[in-house]
Amino acid sequence: MTDIRTILRTASHALGDRLEAELLLAHTLGVNRAWFFAHADDALPAPDETRFAEFVARRVKGEPVAYITGRRDFWSLPLEVTPATLIPRPETELLVELALARLPEGGRLLDLGTGSGAIALAIAKERPDATVHALDASEAALVVAQRNARSLGLRVSFFHGDWFAPVAGERYDIVVSNPPYIEDTDEHLSLGDLRFEPKGALSSGADGMDDIRRIVTAAPAHLYEQGWLLFEHGWNQGEASRACFDVNLWTSITTTPDLESRERVTGARRRSNP
């Protein structure tokens, strides 16, 4: 049997990433990464070493760590993820921050294309007074989101269907979305982790803007007066996103950059009826 220090060193070299090696070994053993500091000289039982080697081999082939472990943390929440859902990314936390800053007490919020439920569950955690609805066109993704809600003990109502269709007649103070926004022909869809993520949740037409345009067009009918629409988009889509808004229907049209100063979230406020 090989000691843990040596196993981690070998795996880190194969992956080119010490953190990924530690995450995979922690998943193999059911421990946290801090455990390794006290047990570096321990021998790893052969069955665990074999299982860990299988995980490393999957990662070397490109499979995302989150799909191998079945978990990704978002907004300090441990979330289950599967190949039916996008892997939540840190930059999406900006969308949560902006929504929380605009959500009135006892307000109503809708998350379009919820995937694993990351955005809706983060908001529900911070604002238990709010009514949070979330929907997705993928039944498989909704099953994951519902499991996450149950495991976290958070109250979110989930709906199955395409964009606003399942909530016809409903109105909200805020609608949020991290929609597909990659161009259909973007070469990155066949590279890296994106190869393994659901294509329908990633790409949207020749310019990546098809679903964003649909959301912006339909949103006024589902917002209270002065309600907000906020959505994430690509770093180079800020101008195109702002151009989607009819200034006769919307005000306060703004794009907020992420921590790397890339345009990331665009939002606007529904005007009051004349």
Results as ranks from 00 to 15, higher is better:
240 A>P: 12
22 E>P: 04
34 A>M: 13
149 A>H: 14
161 G>H: 00
232 E>R: 13
153 G>Y: 09
183 E>F: 00
95 L>R: 13
171 R>G: 03
205 G>D: 02
202 L>G: 03
68 I>Y: 00
92 T>W: 07
136 D>K: 10
172 Y>V: 11
250 W>F: 11
185 T>C: 00
121 L>R: 11
195 R>H: 05
132 V>Q: 05
147 R>W: 03
161 G>L: 01
178 N>Q: 07
12 S>Y: 09
127 R>V: 01
32 N>R: 15
21 A>C: 10
92 T>N: 03
102 R>W: 02
57 A>F: 02
253 I>W: 05
191 L>W: 01
171 R>A: 13
180 P>H: 13
206 A>P: 06
203 S>R: 12
115 G>W: 05
161 G>A: 00
182 I>F: 02
70 G>C: 04
63 E>M: 03
151 S>M: 13
24 L>N: 12
143 V>C: 02
97 E>D: 13
73 D>N: 09
118 A>F: 08
91 E>V: 10
21 A>P: 12
94 L>E: 04
155 R>A: 14
26 A>V: 12
238 G>N: 15
150 R>N: 14
42 D>F: 04
193 D>S: 08
159 F>V: 10
160 H>A: 12
199 K>I: 07
252 S>N: 15
271 R>K: 15
96 V>T: 08
213 R>S: 04
49 E>N: 07
266 T>P: 06
151 S>G: 02
105 E>F: 04
15 L>R: 12
70 G>H: 08
95 L>W: 06
98 L>D: 07
89 R>L: 03
74 F>W: 06
192 G>N: 02
156 V>I: 11
63 E>I: 01
92 T>I: 03
168 A>N: 12
129 D>W: 07
264 R>P: 10
21 A>H: 11
125 K>G: 11
185 T>W: 00
91 E>K: 04
177 S>H: 13
263 E>Y: 04
234 G>T: 14
257 P>M: 05
143 V>M: 10
25 L>T: 12
146 Q>C: 08
8 L>W: 11
158 F>L: 06
200 G>H: 08
185 T>M: 00
77 L>T: 06
98 L>I: 10
96 V>M: 01
216 V>C: 08
87 I>K: 10
224 Y>H: 15
94 L>M: 08
145 A>T: 13
12 S>W: 09
173 D>H: 15
67 Y>R: 07
243 A>E: 14
67 Y>T: 11
73 D>I: 02
210 D>T: 12
213 R>V: 01
54 E>V: 12
